[in-house]
């Protein structure tokens, strides 16, 4: 199957069936968003500033965004998503969903509900036939004006390369820009395998938006290069 065919299959055809993957749509209703704002402004962001005080570099790049975007970041820790949300700021965060591993975060209803409500996560099936449904679901959300934060490495601790193509299908098919993020320091705060954070400073680098183009593989390469470029800026800044 060609990439375009794969992408068309991912679009799910005219029926746009949801299948067995739940969408947790209640978490994007106005009351839930209000509760989420309260949780994030009142507890999550202050707590993160205490445990992992973060500095944001390149925030002016967000000013160039006029609509939804796909944010891609390196993945080191369970703190990646909350710190990214806090770093992106309220304007972006209000209409942003986080693609979270369905097999991990949605393994139980309570865990899924808590993640959906507090962080605005949506279940993303990482492999198998349902992954296309997940992708299609994300495209629907982008079509409705929602941005998506995704960790294309797939799992924690894999660095800023080896991105999987899911985000590229999303960005190219929906024709929305990709914004590279680089998170530095969270591997020290809460690496894979640890469940209690060890506080420390964190830097979040935000790169300029990357135009989606029409080639999935090319977009993956450009996004990897974008994240690597932000990494260089962040490391250089820390050395000052």
């Amino acid at each position: 199957m060609s990439e375009r065919e794969q992408s068309q299959a991912a679009q799910g055809g005219p029926s746009r069936r949801r299948g067995p993957v739940p969408t947790w749509s209640w978490a994007r209703t106005p009351p839930a968003r209000l509760v989420r704002s309260g949780i994030q402004y009142g507890a999550l962001v202050p707590l993160l500033k205490f445990i992992a005080p973060f500095t944001v570099i390149g925030k002016r790049n967000l000013g160039k965004l006029k609509g939804p975007a796909v944010f891609v970041a390196n993945h080191q820790s369970h703190f990646d998503a909350p710190v990214s949300l806090a770093a992106l700021g309220g304007r972006i965060r209000r209409r942003l969903v986080v693609a979270a591993a369905a097999d991990y975060f949605y393994s139980s209803a309570v865990k899924g509900a808590a993640a959906s409500l507090a962080l605005g996560t949506v279940p993303f099936v990482r492999s198998g036939g349902s992954s296309r449904e997940s992708l299609q679901f994300l495209k629907d959300l982008v079509g409705k004006g929602w941005s998506v934060l995704i960790f294309p490495s797939g799992t924690r601790g894999t660095g800023a390369s080896g991105f999987k193509k899911g985000f590229a299908y999303l960005a190219v098919d929906a024709q929305v820009p990709v914004v590279p993020l680089y998170l530095d320091g969270l591997d020290q705060v809460m690496p894979k395998g640890s469940f209690i954070p060890l506080p420390g400073g964190v830097v979040v680098g935000i790169g300029p938006p990357i135009a989606p183009g029409h080639d999935y593989n090319d977009l993956v390469r450009r996004a990897e290069a974008g994240v690597a470029e932000v990494r260089t800026v962040v490391k250089g800044w820390e050395g000052t």
Partner: peptide, 20 residues
């Protein structure tokens, strides 16, 4: 205390259970 101790833990490569 929290940030200072965490930094010392990293300087001295102290195991996490001692760090906490």
């Amino acid at each position: 205390v929290v940030q200072g101790c965490s930094e010392f833990v990293r300087i001295a490569a102290i195991d996490r259970r001692y760090a906490y």
